[in-house]
Amino acid sequence: MDAAWLTQSEILCSHSVQQVLLGSRKPSTQATYLAKWKRFSCWCAQHDTPPLQVPVPLILDYPLSLEQKGLAISSVRVHLAAISAFHPGDRGHSIFSNTMVGRFLKRLDHLYSQVRQLVPAWDLNLVLSRLTGPPFEPMATCSLLYLSWKTAFLIGITSARHISKIRALTSEPPYTVFHKDKVQLRPHSTFLPKVVSSFHVNQDIFLPVFFLKPHAS
């Protein structure tokens, strides 16, 4: 399966270089692409066409069928990205770089523009007040499930971090350090953020302590 991720020119690279290229996509991205490629392969089987030999004009029928089933345009683009990762392309160019595909996606955005549904407004102060009462307080009788929910929410709302970065936090030292006036959190060393740079990889989360107990007022 590793060879399927590499283009014809990338296969000519050394094994060490190939491993670096294979690691350019996160495991979550690889799993997503594999699932969507499998779905595309099933669609090709229904049309009696090998997935690696499907021409671009026929490939465009697939995302159109997905959109007509109610899939969002952003999700359709992910399906095409998955196809582009495995398909050899057309005349040395990937599926995404094909001018016909670009025009198709642009027009698809215009024809099937997504209208955001209005969602009820929520009150942060109301949510915080609920967290100071049962079943979240008192902490001595709070279940681990509710305590985990409360901790994750407070970290998310005060740090504005993505859910993936919050899931990468751990209570084990040296990733969590308690100071007198704050708690210092750092994602696990194996976690890679969306933007992989020295700043984002080593960026800590600092949560100041409550000077008064949250349930005192």
Score class of each variant (00 low, 15 high):
Trp37Cys: 00
Phe206Asp: 12
Trp5Lys: 04
Thr99His: 12
Lys150Pro: 01
Gly156Glu: 05
Ser94Tyr: 11
Phe96Pro: 00
Ser84Tyr: 04
Gln203Trp: 02
Ser74Trp: 01
Leu212Gln: 13
Ile155Met: 09
Asp204His: 08
Ile59Gln: 10
Arg77Thr: 04
Pro208Asp: 04
Leu58His: 11
Met139Lys: 11
Asp181Leu: 07
Val127Tyr: 11
Tyr175Ser: 06
Leu192Gln: 11
Ile155Ala: 03
Leu71Tyr: 09
Val20Cys: 03
Gln68Cys: 09
Pro63Gln: 02
Ala72Arg: 15
Thr49Met: 10
Pro88Arg: 08
Tyr62Asn: 00
Leu71Cys: 10
Pro214Asp: 05
Leu60Pro: 05
Leu22Val: 01
Ala45Arg: 14
Pro138Cys: 07
Phe40Pro: 00
Phe210Gly: 10
Ser65Asn: 03
Asp61Gly: 08
Leu212Met: 11
Ser217Ile: 09
Arg25Phe: 07
Leu128Val: 04
Phe40Lys: 00
Pro88His: 10
Ile155Glu: 03
Ala81Val: 01
Thr158Ile: 01
Pro51Glu: 11
Met1Ile: 04
Arg25Pro: 01
Phe191Lys: 02
Gln46Met: 10
Ala3Cys: 04
His93Ser: 07
Ile155Leu: 15
Leu80Ser: 01
Val78Met: 12
Asp2Pro: 06
Val183Met: 12
Arg107Thr: 08
Ile59Gly: 03
Trp122Tyr: 10
Phe178His: 14
Phe96Arg: 15
Asp2Lys: 14
Gly156Lys: 05
Ser159Met: 05
Pro193Phe: 06
Leu147Gln: 15
Ala45Val: 00
Gln117Asn: 12
Pro138Ala: 06
Glu67Val: 11
Leu66His: 02
Leu58Phe: 07
Asp61Gln: 13
Ala216Tyr: 08
Asp90Tyr: 13
Gln18Lys: 15
Thr99Lys: 14
Asp61Thr: 09
His200Gln: 14
Ala216His: 13
Thr99Arg: 13
Ser113Ala: 11
Cys42Asp: 15
Thr132Leu: 00
Ser24Leu: 08
Ile73Tyr: 13
Arg103Thr: 05
Ser129Asn: 15
Ser28Asn: 14
Lys38Trp: 03
His15Ser: 12
Pro174Met: 05
Lys106Val: 06
Val78Gln: 15
Pro173Trp: 09
Pro55Met: 01
Lys26Asp: 13
Leu124Pro: 02
Ser171Trp: 06
Ala121Phe: 05
Gly102Thr: 03
Asp181Lys: 11
Leu124Trp: 07
Pro63Glu: 00
